[in-house]
């Protein structure tokens, strides 16, 4: 978890300097730094020799790219129809209370971000909570807290 982050140059050098790699680079930078900083945006634009406004346009278009720093763990609570009916809102409330943030926000320690998604295609195991790459189905009351605690432990 605590390994050093790759520098922007190290990320850029793994891609050829062509416009079609701009999204792949942005995704890689997002993964590494959890956001696209103004300096990195400029570095990408210089490397690919395309205007900064084009890269900015792309970075604001895709939801998976962020201009503000996201948490180490991104908790997504599904609020699709099936999850909604099976009580996703109380799960969401629980997460909000545990982290003391609202949806779309990040905890001050930079550990968690909370997002609402509109269906992840796993309706059979509603309600669903996703923490980074891990999917949790049939989330009961109390389970959300467990997920958060296990993340906190993983960092320690």
């Amino acid at each position: 978890m605590n390994d050093k982050k790759r520098s922007i140059e190290e990320i850029l050098i793994t891609f050829p300097s062509a416009k079609r790699f701009s999204l792949a680079i942005l995704q890689e930078v997002q993964k590494e730094y959890k956001y696209i900083s103004p300096d990195n945006l400029k570095a990408i634009s210089n490397y690919l020799a395309i205007p900064i406004s084009d890269i900015f346009s792309m970075a604001t278009y895709y939801k998976s790219l962020s201009l503000e720093k996201k948490g180490e763990f991104i908790i997504k609570v599904c609020d699709g129809t099936a999850c909604h009916i099976r009580g996703s809102l109380s799960v969401l409330d629980e997460v909000k209370r545990a982290l003391n943030i609202n949806e779309g926000e990040t905890t001050p320690d930079g550990l968690f971000s909370l997002e609402i998604v509109n269906c992840v295609g796993a309706c059979a195991m509603a309600p669903v909570v996703i923490c980074n790459q891990d999917y949790f189905g049939n989330v009961k009351l109390g389970k959300a807290k467990e997920i958060i605690n296990s993340c906190v432990k993983a960092v320690d």
């Binding site: 205007p51 900064i52 406004s53 084009d54 900015f56 346009s57 604001t60 278009y61």
Partner: peptide, 10 residues
Amino acid sequence: GISAISTVNR
């Protein structure tokens, strides 16, 4: 050749 503006958000 300036490209100072672009579409932002969606």
